[in-house]
Design a binder for these strands. Structure first.
Lengths: 242, 242
DNA sequence: GACGCTCTCGTACAGTGTGCGAATGCAATC
DNA sequence: GATTGCATTCGCACACTGTACGAGAGCGTC
């Protein structure tokens, strides 16, 4: 039975101490950078190999010399995003502060690259930057005093929360952006529809009113994020063995 | 400026008290049901209008009589999933128990329909079942004693956590399933690659060893889920005004 | 000059979502 | 019963997708 590679990383590792083949790897880096630019600017659906090729002034199929296929390219782009995320470990910070920095950094990276959030659910992250980050996260909670499986559980709880909030936040932004309206305009324009659908749902309706009247929606989102984050961190602290 | 509909729900609400046109809506229900069957059985990528058409014994383009386009169809399917989720409210349960039931139910629904998790990040959920669920969730935390924005924050914290863990859990299952191997086999087969990539990352490596030696991976996943869930619930409880 | 290796790209194939317009079937009206 | 009109189906076409294939270009080494 031949081995089944499920990602770039598996393939690379299996090929052994890979000869980096300098030119090829720098070209690959350029391709990945262009990919991220295109994704950031126009979204996941706008990325096609042909468009990427013209952006790079090369034929669409030439890209395949540096990259096995489109999902591998996306894996590489994802790992680049993981490289942007800060996790200050070993700097004398209290673990809750370090975890908070990490959480905010993760959220911001995902909001900067909304396409990344859609890919997160699709495939596990096993690239070098993702592994470095995972290792740092585990060290963070190990130093905090967790042991054994609890380390893994703590890391997962925190990242799961951040990924979850950020996914819905970014989904909301994208939907609004798709109409070309500002969030405030969107709320006003859809007022009748939303209100109608909320007939008989007073609690939801009250939330809608609060949202519509609030000042800056981005600020609300940050408050919301901070609320949940402190819940998670408190819950983790309560599970620290003493 | 003509209104920009961003989803089925906006369009339906704007069309006013819609004449349900009985035949059409039952056919739409059949289409949605077939869609979900196809998605469950073969995944998001396998859903094409042509395949769905043959499954329904109709031409691909006939589907467009009942459904405006593919993303609207997916919105409808998503809302069906929301309909499967239990949230026992007003039954005399302690709020933490009810929240826990909800969390497990949400996780299981998403694991039953792994495609749904990938769509969750893409667009906000505004279908009728989603709204009912949101309303129930807000009532749950209102009854628990939260006030004002904290109600919304509590709901979001809990659902964000569940969505986040479940996304990575299901991503892992999908990746393993794509190789046709069992999770145990996958770990064995990829041992050398994984271990190599974890050189110099002792903490991560220790996690890998624990995972590889553990009995049932599904059980581990449930433990992990329960750990984070209790963190979140504890954190929420600590924020209850008293 | 001949080889081999790295790299580019044109062409082609099978597939996608969906707009359009012609065709069908069926119910109500004359 | 014939005719009209509407609901519904569907074949075709278009522009587009990822990528396999194979022909070629440029270049360093014998």
């Amino acid at each position: 039975m031949k081995p089944q590679y499920t990602s770039v990383w598996g393939r690379l590792a299996a090929e052994g101490a890979r000869p980096p083949k300098k030119d090829a790897s720098t070209s690959q880096a350029q391709i990945v950078r262009a990919t991220i630019e295109l994704l950031d600017a126009e979204g996941l659906d706008a990325l096609s190999m042909r468009r990427l090729g013209t952006k790079l002034s090369m034929g669409a199929t030439s890209i395949y010399w540096y990259v096995a296929n489109k999902v591998e390219l996306l894996d590489l782009a994802m790992d680049e995003v993981f490289g942007e995320i800060a996790l200050p470990v070993g700097g004398g910070l209290h673990w809750q502060e370090a975890a908070s920095v990490f959480a905010h950094s993760l959220r911001q990276a995902l909001l900067r690259h909304p396409w990344a959030i859609k890919l997160l659910g699709s495939r596990p992250s096993l690239g070098p930057n993702a592994l470095i980050l995972a290792e740092k996260a585990m060290i963070l909670f190990e130093d905090a005093g967790f042991h054994g499986p609890a380390i893994d559980h703590a890391v997962n709880t925190l990242t799961a929360y951040v990924m979850g909030v950020t996914a819905s936040e970014s989904g909301w932004y994208e939907m609004v952006a798709a109409t070309g309206l500002s969030p405030k305009q969107w709320l006003e324009q859809n007022e009748s529809a939303v209100v109608a659908s909320m007939a008989g749902r007073p609690t939801l309706h009250a939330l809608y009113e609060r949202t519509r009247e609030s000042g800056d929606l981005r600020d609300d989102m940050i408050d919301r994020f901070a609320f949940g984050l402190s819940c998670v961190l408190d819950g983790l602290a309560a599970r620290l063995p003493r």
